[in-house]
Design a protein around this nucleic acid. Sequence first.
DNA 1: TTTAAAAGATAGTATTACTATTATAAATAA
DNA 2: TTATTTATAATAGTAATACTATCTTTTAAA
Lengths: 225, 225
Amino acid sequence: MEVQLQIKMNEKLFIRNPEQTELGRKIVQHGIQLIHEIGFESFTFKKLAEDIGTTEAGIYRYFENKHRLLIYITAWYWGWLQYRVLFTTNNIKDPAVKLRKVIHLLATTVEDDDSTLHINEDLLHQILRAEGSKAYLTKHVTEDNKEQLFKPYKDLCAVIADIILECKPKYKFPRSLASTIIEMAHFQNFFMNNLPSLTDFGKTKDESKVVSFLEDLVFSSIRKK
Amino acid sequence: MEVQLQIKMNEKLFIRNPEQTELGRKIVQHGIQLIHEIGFESFTFKKLAEDIGTTEAGIYRYFENKHRLLIYITAWYWGWLQYRVLFTTNNIKDPAVKLRKVIHLLATTVEDDDSTLHINEDLLHQILRAEGSKAYLTKHVTEDNKEQLFKPYKDLCAVIADIILECKPKYKFPRSLASTIIEMAHFQNFFMNNLPSLTDFGKTKDESKVVSFLEDLVFSSIRKK
DNA sequence: TTTAAAAGATAGTATTACTATTATAAATAA
DNA sequence: TTATTTATAATAGTAATACTATCTTTTAAA
């Protein structure tokens, strides 16, 4: 059985839906590759167009600008991750086990998922680690937020916060703890690989240590008494 | 008695030392104001030059590019914060009390400090909350790090990690916990004000709640038992 | 087969991110 | 005091970026 996974994206993220055409899918696919390769700052629509064999103007028919493309792919990532969280934790009763699985999903390398043909989830995950927060660290975050561009991120945060509350109903900071886990899953990995003295894993560069740290952090906060 | 505070800056951060000339100090002073006002993405040396009443070329004599200026002011901030941490925690025996003071320094609004004339610490702190991580979230982080540009950040992290170890010598993740506190002191505040559903303080927008969250997080992690 | 939608080709503009040059003013050393 | 260094100002220029506009050709749906 072949299942095709479709993440429903907010219409405001694009001008023309990139999933519905060959060129659109190429923009997303090669966009991910190119941002991963040269970084978001150096990334331009001109370079992407050359990569694909189309023109700059062609890309502008799909995305208003490169920042919107970044929001698009990050939103896609959070949507996909939420799907995986719900799938992975389904039928599990113990909320602590759920939480462990969530931390694992957030902090460890993903394998490319064949059910989404044009998106390389591993590259996308690596982009998220280095560039993810740039999607909202802007002066226009409030307007972007009004357009619901960050909904997938916020939804995921809410899902995790709920699991935290299942573990400890009286815990006072479920959302902040959830956003802390999400951000630190990426930042601690980035630090480990690029600014190792900001972590305790610089020597081994072993991502399972990030998992251990996050588990310790979370379960200390929510253990009874 | 008037004391003038001088933060010794890494020579590689600038082309000409901005502290030593009138124009240099103006670049830093108005640079902070302008980045705060329009955000780092929209900020250009042209606009800054117009602001000051000098020319673009004039600014390029001090800083290689706007990213270096961002690293410069963030490095200054971390250096200044470390000084305040050492000052504030001096002569305090109880490491837990020290840690509380550190969290407070990290997470609450600062008043402009008159001992540094050309730098508005409050604006600088606000810049750090929104733009601070952009200083290192780049493709050239490794080369920048080799030039020791992030030393003040790393030093501060080490100072905090040491206090954590004083509290609990066997704790396994002092540096990661320190960098988590530092980052979350800024991120939770940014979220509270801009993406409130990622936190538990959206209603009140009260920064003392960020302090409570961080204290809870840290002291859960390092309590005995 | 007609028609509409998408893509390609081409051109053009304002702004950004610089570098270079030359002239002038201010500070300092001989 | 003059000579000399040093900093600044004024101006010009370039390649790249971030777009917008228009027109033609190809592809796909009615």
